[in-house]
Write a protein that binds this DNA or RNA. Structure first.
Lengths: 342, 342
DNA sequence: CTGAAAGCGCTAACAC
DNA sequence: GTGTTAGCGCTTTCAG
């Protein structure tokens, strides 16, 4: 059984260290049951030979892959939507630092909505450290959770699926309240897609604030967007036509808000002097907009990092929930003072 | 050897179909040497048992993992830069559709510059379908290529490393020429980081155009940015101070260009009436900017898709190069006509 | 505390 | 064509 191939195997390490493969394995995985002098010899052998464990063999033998799966579901046939949606990048950005140095790989799965059920089943079947569901619907999340408990969802999900929950309702409420505090009284709103859980919560918070503020009449001054810039642009134009004198807009995501800012200025109005705008997310769209967007920050990176740590720590408890605040980040679409900050 | 576990193995499939494991394997991988009736029986068994191949076992036995690795190198310790840089998302967006349905997984590696050499060695050691280097330096790319030929780089790289090459020089040249064609004569430029290969090419193209156009004197009206919005903002401010009458800017990436647009309008100038701006990339920053950016489109998605297909097709030939054009996308930072397109 | 041995589930020569 | 037989490189009982 001596190894001949170019890449050293654990067998080579064991031989070089003068121990058995079992012992070599133990020290390499720093598992208990090997000690002192032997550990050193093995480590030395590893260093000398430049040994690198074969992850496939390891996965096969142990029955578990050192990988976390990130799953995104696309709506259309267009699997490339990612390129234009900052959200997914942020979840990746949140996950990566926590995977740093823990010897776990990150696998990406973008599954078309149609085949999502099957695809999710396949992924759940491979025993990995677990999966982060970026935007799965409650049904899909539940389905995954039934097959594999090592999973956590990043969006509001049903029942027992462990999830990270941002205070979308509270954030939207706070945004409208802020607009009101600024003296705005004709507040329009651009909501997200009707069926989207996050969008529903944000809409709820917005409506509730309008109501509490005695602005109930404005509940009709709304349009539905698609969480993309184009939708925000179009919705804003529609709203402006519906009430040319509106003085503020709450827009349920930054991408749409960026489009709204473009629409508002294109009609000759000034932002924020004539109309104040507050977005949601604090994504890259917020800072690229001109003027930069005041927005409600959704701590996506933190949420994703927490989700990942949960998976790394073991199987998350069924029904586990972790709440995250959504906070106001003031930039220039709400403040008239032209300070030369950013 | 009958299997007892919950997940069916190929052994179960073989038994159910009344064939040997080898035959089952053949039809599952639709390899030659199994035919007609048997194929059907195996397929039926697969369907009935809900068999799903174990990827680890497959990888171990075949010596090759069905995975493509995407590698990004970060400059700082901050592995989360992704969240704010649209480029990486675009390479992912380009890769994913081509991996769709080919039973190959996508693995992400973000390695800090410091440990990049080691990390890259480890990745090269695992035999996968190959790696796409998103932003590796020529040295790192060469290093990887020495250990593993199944690799292609997305940025200008040294020698024999297969690579996708966008016409950065030509694109920058065309941008400046366009500004000139529009009647602009005081054209400033914001370049990228000094050592970045793409930035270098864009700078070259810009300078060459300035020269050919007889605008050599302007070669001094430049600033170096960092490929981030903040850098573009600051650079634009500096330039405006240096020459308050400048009437155009060529900015080497959209993120910086978005910052430049903000800076220009913040000083009371109008875009594009007072100063025209052309960015580079055609990333999400271009459309979120206000007004939306005219830019030179770098076909990142196409490049990434091509790179991936190359890997899927086998080992790319050493020194293989594929060129991509960089084309002008006209939006509103160069056109005064206020058509309501956006 | 250490080693021997038995697989993990699959593929790939090699015989039939 | 199809089945038999070895392993792939590692982990993990189980003895010693």
């Amino acid at each position: 059984m001596p190894t001949t191939g170019l890449r050293p195997t654990i067998y080579d390490v064991a031989r070089a260290a003068g121990v058995s493969r079992a012992t070599a394995s133990r020290v390499i995985n720093n598992a208990p049951g090997a000690s002192g002098p032997l550990r050193e010899r093995v480590h030395a052998a590893v260093a000398e030979l430049g040994y690198q464990p074969n992850s496939a063999a390891r996965a096969l033998a142990s029955g578990r892959q050192r990988a976390v799966d990130v799953i995104a579901v696309t709506n259309g046939p267009d699997v490339g939507w990612l390129g234009t949606h900052p959200y997914f990048s942020r979840v990746l950005a949140g996950i990566m630092p926590v995977l740093e140095g823990v010897d776990a790989q990150l696998r990406l799965h973008v599954v078309p909505h149609g085949t999502a059920a099957d695809a999710i089943g396949e992924i759940a079947a491979q025993a990995t450290l677990g999966a982060v569901l970026a935007d799965a619907t409650p049904e899909l999340a539940t389905r995954f959770h039934r097959r594999c408990r090592r999973v956590v969802s990043m969006v509001p999900t049903a029942g027992s699926v462990p999830g990270m929950e941002a205070d979308n309702v509270g954030g939207a409420y706070a945004a409208v309240a802020e607009l009101h505090r600024l003296g705005r009284r004709r507040i329009a709103a651009v909501h997200g897609p009707a069926g989207n859980p996050c969008a529903i919560d944000r809409r709820t918070g917005c409506l509730r604030a309008l109501d509490d503020l005695g602005l109930t009449a404005l509940a009709g001054l709304t349009a539905d967007g698609d969480f993309y810039r184009e939708g925000g642009h179009a919705a804003a134009l529609r709203l402006l036509e519906q009430d040319p004198a509106l003085d503020a807009m709450f827009v349920a995501c930054d991408l749409m808000a960026a489009g709204a800012v473009q629409a508002v200025t294109a009609t000759g109005r000034r932002v924020p002097e004539d109309v104040s705008i507050i977005g949601f997310d604090d994504s890259i769209a917020a800072v690229c907009s001109n003027p930069p967007l005041t927005t409600m920050r959704l701590p996506v990176e933190e949420m994703a990092a927490t989700a990942t740590r949960l998976l790394l720590d073991g199987t998350p408890a069924s029904g586990h929930r972790q709440r995250f605040p959504v906070e106001l980040v003031t930039r220039q679409t709400t403040q008239t003072t032209q300070t030369t900050q950013n």
